[in-house]
Simulated scan of single mutants.
Amino acid sequence: MAHTEMTVDELIDLLSGCDGRTPVRLAMNPFFPMAHRLAQVVQATDEIEQPVVYLAEGREADTQLGHLPPEVAVTLAWQAPVQAPPRRPRRTACGS
């Protein structure tokens, strides 16, 4: 199965509906979803000399921001929606 890659025009189109002052983050690793700060955009060529644009995280220690919010992982279909278990009544000191 061939993978289709997002183009710069498609990315710009998707971002055009967002507030331009909003920070951009990368959601990475669907098996252990984490959020990362975006630091650079680099234009280059790939191994077959086709142009490509890379979005890169920074090198600072705080570039990885932590776990991806669960609602984002669910929206990306990286995790299934999870509901909290029902609460049980608390036991009293006399064991009932």
Rank of each mutant, 00 (worst) to 15 (best):
Q40T: 04
A93R: 14
G20P: 09
V53K: 03
D46R: 03
V74D: 08
R37A: 13
P89S: 05
T45L: 11
C94V: 07
H36Y: 15
L76S: 07
L14M: 10
R90N: 11
E49W: 00
L65S: 10
G20V: 11
P70A: 15
M34V: 10
E10T: 09
P86F: 03
A2M: 11
E47P: 00
E71I: 09
A27R: 04
A35K: 04
E5D: 13
R25N: 06
T4E: 12
F31L: 15
H36W: 15
Q83R: 11
A35P: 00
A93P: 01
V72L: 10
G95R: 02
A27M: 05
A27V: 04
R91Y: 02
L65M: 14
L11C: 04
P30F: 12
R37L: 14
P23M: 13
Y54V: 04
Q43A: 15
A61N: 01
Q50P: 01
T63C: 14
A35H: 01
G17D: 10
V41L: 09
L38K: 11
H36R: 02
L65P: 01
V74S: 09
V53D: 00
Q40K: 07
T7R: 07
E60G: 00
E10I: 03
T7F: 08
P70N: 08
R59T: 02
H3E: 15
L11Q: 11
E47W: 12
Q64V: 07
T22I: 11
E47G: 02
E10C: 06
R59G: 08
L26Q: 02
M34C: 13
L55W: 03
A27F: 05
L68A: 01
E57A: 06
H36I: 12
T22E: 13
L26I: 15
H3F: 15
R25S: 04
Q50H: 10
M28N: 13
P30G: 14
P69T: 04
